[in-house]
Structures are given as C-alpha cells and as structure tokens.
Design a protein around this nucleic acid. Structure first.
Length: 571
RNA sequence: CGGAGCGUGGCGCAGUUUGGUAGCGCACCUGCUUUGGGAGCAGGGGGUCGAAGGUUCAAAUCCUUUCGCUCCGACCA
C-alpha cells in the first residue's frame, strides 16, 4: 500500500491569501495547495486537488453507469467540418480555440461534443433496434471564455462529464432525460452538495426542455427565482411572474414635451412627477446586425435572454452611440416607439393596452406623453420580455411569491431533439422501414466547477470543510514532537487505520504543532487525530471533527471502533 | 470588447507623487535554543523592479508602446 506521508507530499500551502483571488473557493483552492494557475482560467491540479476531482469523477461514473450510460472517450481536437454541418461553427465562434494542422485543415479544441457524438453514431446506428443509447465521457473541455473568473468556477479549460442520449422518439427522450435527472440528483447528493434543479434556458445548445442544477451560494453567477409556495424554480433568464397589464385609461391626444437632458427613467419620474410605470423604456439592441427596439415598462428591466429567444437570434448587443442615428434615426436617451422606422419593435406583454404613457420622442431633449398603444405606435408582437423581481407573484400558483437567490450552475441537462441529427443526417430506420432522425439529449456536469461549489458551500474561517465523500483523505494524523515513542505510535495507528480501509494522511513533518493544526484545518480533512506526549501518557489521542471543530479524547486501545463510529457520524 | 485597478526575490506588500546605492514581513539555507495552536536569537542566499523603446549625468520612479493578471458588464459546466 502506498504510504502517504505529508513530509513527502507535494502540498504547498499558503499562509496568506493570494492577491489574484477574491472568491472564497478560489482563495482556498490556492491556499490549500490544490492547484496553481498556469494562465487566466487555466490551472494545474496538484495531488490534493486532483484527488478530490477523482473522487467526484468516481461518484459520477457510478451513477452514470447505473443509469445505463456507457463511458467513452471522444476527441478533444475536432474538425471544423462537423461544426459547419451542425451550423454551430459561427454560433460558437470566438468561444472556440481554432487552429490549422500542417495540411491546412481547420480544427477546434472541443468546447462540447454534440457534433462528435452525432458524427460517431450516425454510421453505426441503422435501426431502431440499436436504440436507445447513452454515451458519456469525462474530459477536458476548452472554451475561450470572454472572461474567465473566480478560479475554476469559470475556466477556459475545465473538466466536464458530458453525456448524450439517443432515442427513437420524444417519448424515449423523456425517459432518458428523466433517468439523467434522477442520476444527477444522486450524484450531487452523494457529493454532499445541496443542489436544486431549476428550469433553464437552452442557450447555444438549442432544444426544448432544459434544467440546470444549481448549488446555492452567494458567489454564484446565476440568479434563480424560487416560489415560496409551490415547486416552481427557474433561472431568472427564463422565470416569469404574474404581473398585471398597465393601463391608465387615458385617451388624451399625444403631446410633445420638452425634457432637457432628461435621459433616464429616474430623471423623468422626478421631472414629470409620474410613476415609472407610466414610462415605456425602449431598449435599442442589435440582433445579428438587425436594429431592434425592445419595449418594457419603465419599472421593469429587459430580459435579454427572452428577447433573443423570441428573435431566434445568435447574437444580441446594445446599440452603439453612432447606431442610434444610423439605424434608428433617433438619439440615445430619447428613443421611443412612435414613428420609429425600419426597426423591429417588440413589446413586453404588460404594455399591450397601455395608454397615457410617456415615451422618447426620437429627438434630443424631447419626450411624448399621452401615448397609446395601437393608436400611436404598432409593435411586431407582445410577449414576455421582463426580468422578474424579488417578491413578485408566482406565475405557476396563485398565492406564492418569488424569492431570488444566487446559485452556481454545476449541471445542465437538455432535450436537444433532432437539431443535430437532422443537420448531420444521423438517421435510423423505424419499424416501417422509414428513415427517422435520432432524437437526442445532452447532459453536462462541470466536475472542476463542482469542486469550487463544494468549497463555497463548505468552509469556515479556518479553511475548507470537505464532505467526507469527496474529501481527499478521510483522516489526518498529526504526529507532534520529536519523541520516538510518539513517532512509533503514530505510524502504528496510521498503518492500522489504512489496513482498516481508510484513506489516511500522516503529518510527519518536522513542523511545530501550530503549523500542523492550521494546515489540517485549511485542507479540510473530516477527521483529525492528534498524537502527542500529553495525550499519549493517558493512553488517548485527541480527535477533532472538522465539521464542527469539536474535540474529544479517544482511547488508543479501541481506536478503530471509535474512528468507525466518528466517521459514520460525519456528513 | 467597454469601464476600473494591479505587475518590485517563491508568497504578501512598501518604495513611484518630488528621478540619486532596491527594502520589509513570511518562506528558504546554517547554527544554537524551543517543542500541543503559524517559535526565539545569530548568520546567510536569492530580485536585469512584466517587456521593449525613449528622456536624463542618473529611471522601479518621467514619457511612449506592448504583454500579462484581477475586478465590474455581455457568454457558460
């Protein structure tokens, strides 16, 4: 058996917070010697960090295998052809690292593997008898993120478990999807994480249903709306709330008003003494090069994801200064829907019957009041475009209200449908000998992000507190002092516990007690056994449970039984 | 890409405003003491001050360019 003595372990811990980190998991992963940065969003994992990763991978494999998924390993280097076939070469665009080989053939480093899987199975799967199938892998993904952040939370290189289900029809997909949903719940639970499934947007993956698995943490980059009464939980990108339409029942004629240098809703509220609900906010965005004005109430915020989905656009960005003139014949701060030419106007459904509204006049320093929808302007469509807010009424049940919390997306599952199989001609023959596209799903878990999420959820002022299922070691033995008897006893206990099947780390370094105590807390090992002259005289060692930092004396004579008992109690 | 900030021994920082012999703490090496909560004393090693160019008798410090990193916004596991 391999001896893991701390004197030989490559574990460079840091006493001070590194200046490059300011999120707790990032700081602790560096301080605990789990990893080191190579470049922005790219890390080397050191022995301790890699051990945790392997633990999570093992748990993931177990539940994937139990769900009848089969592990494969797909190429990291992928030809541009398959991406062009699926029509995502441009969609993923700058997110992909692209390069040419010596024969001038173009490749990318795989940011995800839908294309490869579809390409792989399309020649092998000929009949409905070959389906269903679920293939998964655990592999490094490369995405040239716009902004890598928070250490391993948003890296440019990260380890992901990705699975792809292949079914004959949507009914089969529903089953495959549910199986993955269930497996995910088990995986996160076994990793000791509190994760919740929420309704999600499908983004660049496409498809219809989608759930994200979120670990609630203040440092999370996602906002999630939860109903306090029913089961409803959704990413705010998608969440909807019950809001009444706005109508001031005011038929007065439209009127132009001078509003010098009044550009924001707040300024207007003050200047006109009208509530924000009376204003219409027109947000100028350019979607795939096309000018769009999105209308929401002055008291609401535009939800860009909802807009992009309505438009079926690839890219959405705010209009630039010059574009207000060129594309909108308007001016920043005074844009409005009345007489807005050659611009697609999409409005939030709350504005459907609005009257008596105030809008920009498309002229510097002027607004229009008493504006009425339908009479003074037309829109292409009324649809849900607003971002939900804390406390609003739930759209699923009548009596609940929405709470908004931050979360870290650790898993995401998609019902892809036939988008890839159709674009890439992955067909099978059904019972009637008729060619049908394979119905697909895709399922991801960010393994390395999960490590960070686990730390975000389990830490204190002293360091990491690993849930025992993913801890790099379950037990750490501190051997204090230079006394020969202590060294011998420590070795003995160490060997016994190893033989009993535990993963044990022995701190045999020539360090002072304080250093050992602090390092053991920093690296978050669930159970610590301290062996020193003070306790040894009385035939006991001191145990400390990292979870609650409680200490107790245990007798050396029946140490194995006592350790088993303690480990069992630890979560 | 837009906005903000930072690059000085391995790590954390001071020094830059006002140009004039590169410093502090931690870590590291040697010796002695200490030894259950990040030790003490003594001695020691290590930095072309992110890079390039310029101004100057003289540049970490002033100017120009450039690269990297972090944070705030749009992307995602």
């Amino acid at each position: 058996m391999i001896k893991m003595r701390m004197s030989k372990l490559y574990l460079p811990t840091l006493k001070e917070d590194p200046s490059e980190a300011d999120v707790v998991s990032h700081k602790l992963m560096l301080r605990a010697g789990m990893m080191r940065k190579h470049s922005a969003g790219i890390y080397s994992y050191l022995p301790l960090g890699y051990k945790v990763i392997k633990k999570i991978e093992k748990i993931t494999r177990k539940h994937m295998d139990n769900a009848q998924a089969q592990e494969v390993l797909l190429p990291i280097m992928q030809t541009s052809e398959i991406w062009k076939e699926s029509k995502r070469w441009d969609k993923f665009g700058p997110l992909m690292v692209k390069f040419f080989d010596r024969k001038n053939r173009e490749y990318c480093l795989g940011p995800t593997h839908e294309e490869v899987v579809t390409d792989l199975v399309k020649d092998e799967i000929r009949s409905y008898k070959d389906l269903p199938l679920n293939l998964y892998q655990i592999q490094t993904k490369v995405r040239d993120e716009i902004r890598p952040r928070f250490g391993v939370m948003r890296g440019r290189e990260f380890i992901m478990k990705d699975a792809y289900s292949l079914d004959i029809d949507y009914e089969g997909l529903d089953k495959s999807y549910q199986a993955m949903y269930d497996a995910y719940e088990k995986i996160f639970a076994e990793c000791g994480l509190e994760a919740v499934a929420v309704e999600a947007d499908t983004g660049a993956m496409g498809g219809k249903d989608s759930h994200e698995f979120m670990v609630l943490a203040d440092s999370g980059e996602d906002q999630i709306a939860f109903c306090d009464s029913c089961e409803y939980a959704a990413n705010v990108e998608r969440a909807s709330a019950e809001k009444t339409n706005i109508d001031f029942e005011d038929d007065a004629e439209i009127e132009k008003i001078h509003t010098p240098d009044i550009k924001t809703i707040e300024d207007l509220e003050e200047f006109l003494a009208y509530p924000a609900a009376r204003m219409i906010k027109a947000v100028a965005v350019v979607a795939d090069g096309e000018a769009v004005a999105a209308l929401v109430s002055g008291e609401d915020e535009l939800n860009e994801v909802k807009l992009i989905n309505y438009l079926k656009a690839n890219e959405l960005r705010a209009a630039e200064e010059e574009e207000f003139e060129e594309l909108y014949q308007s001016t920043a701060g005074f844009i409005g829907p009345v007489n807005l030419k050659n611009v697609r106007i999409i409005a939030d459904k709350r504005l459907k019957n609005i009257s008596g509204a105030v809008v920009g006049a498309n002229e510097k320093d002027y607004h229009l009041k008493n504006v009425k929808a339908g009479r003074d302007f037309e829109v292409e469509a009324y649809t849900d475009l607003r971002l939900v807010k804390e406390g609003e009424r739930c759209s699923k049940c009548s009596d609940g209200h929405l709470n908004i919390k931050a979360g870290i997306e650790v898993g995401h599952i998609f019902k892809l449908g036939t988008k890839y199989s159709e674009n890439m001609q992955a067909d099978y023959l059904d019972e009637n000998g008729k060619s049908q596209p394979i119905v697909m799903g895709s399922y991801g878990i960010g393994i390395t992000r999960l490590v960070a999420a686990a730390i975000e959820q389990n830490n204190d002022e002293y360091g990491i507190i690993w849930p025992k299922s993913i801890a790099p070691y379950q037990i750490i033995i501190l051997s204090l002092g230079n006394d020969e008897e202590i060294k011998v006893k420590s070795e003995e206990i160490y060997e016994d516990l190893k033989t009993a099947g535990y993963e044990v780390l022995l701190d045999d370094r020539k360090e002072r007690a304080g250093v050992k105590f602090n390092d053991s807390e920093l690296i978050g090992i669930p159970l610590r056994l301290t062996i020193g002259s003070r306790s040894l005289e009385n035939g006991v060692v001191e145990a400390m449970i990292r979870e609650n930092n409680k200490k107790l004396k245990i007798e050396i004579d029946n140490i194995e039984d006592k350790v088993a008992e303690l480990i069992k109690e630890i979560s």
